[in-house]
Amino acid sequence: MQIPRLPLGEGIEFIIDFLVDHCAFATKALSAFLEHGLDLLEDGMLAIPPIVFIIIVALLAWRLSRKKSIGLFALLGLLLILNIGLWKATVSTIALVLIATLIAIAIGVPLGIGAAMSKHLHKIIMPTLDVMQTMPAFVYLIPAIPFFGLGKIAAIFSTVIFAMPPAIRLTCLGIKQVPPELVECAEAFGSTRSQRLFKLELPLAMPTIMAGVNQTVMLALSMVVIASMIGAKGLGGEVWKAIQRLQMGNGFEAGIGIVIVAMILDRVLQKVGAKKRS
């Protein structure tokens, strides 16, 4: 007997089509709104003279990380980017990553808290995360298009999906790692659940949550090249262009640009996380 081929793909397609038919008008509207916001952010950032912008970022990196070397690295790295003519692309990438990370954190941290507080939610969220993290990132691009149309917002959407899991996981982990005797103490004093969360668990989980945020930012950055395939421009777009035209030099330049942005963000966020711990 031959088992007929199960229509798995067809099923998923059906569901997505159904959602597209019924929700796309809303997501498209959201998309237009977000796109407008993103453009504003980008234009705003571009309106600042690059040198001023670079100095501000370098100072910020220095103050936040409390390390001169990181400030200096930011200064030189960004000057290099400016020098090789990738400034506009970089600003566009930073804006996209910023928005995507903020959304990912705004959704991911509450979900992580929920997973730590409710066993049921934990049982639903954790396997979902496994799927999200092992699914090749390219796959997210496909449904993003019908919902949001080609362009930056579809890119942000797939970036959020791709980058969110560490924020959820590490928030949950951070809360669960709070020593049980402290939790017991909070209970013994008659704390409500939210008092326990805000006065004990979240402050103690903060370094772990920051590590999750850091990872989310890094994943978002690593997604920019992939996302450029559906119309996000920026540094990822430069890489993608170089791939299509086999321009090795340009490709590496844009790649180095991504690395510089990633390293600045990583070092600063790491130090911010570590500072909270002490």
């Binding site: 005797e181 402290l182 017991e184 103490c185 013994a188 004093f189 006065k199 004990l200 103690l204």
Partner: peptide, 9 residues
């Protein structure tokens, strides 16, 4: 309540 391992925050 007072705890064996202090349980200070």
């Amino acid at each position: 309540m007072v705890f064996q391992n202090f349980a200070l925050f």
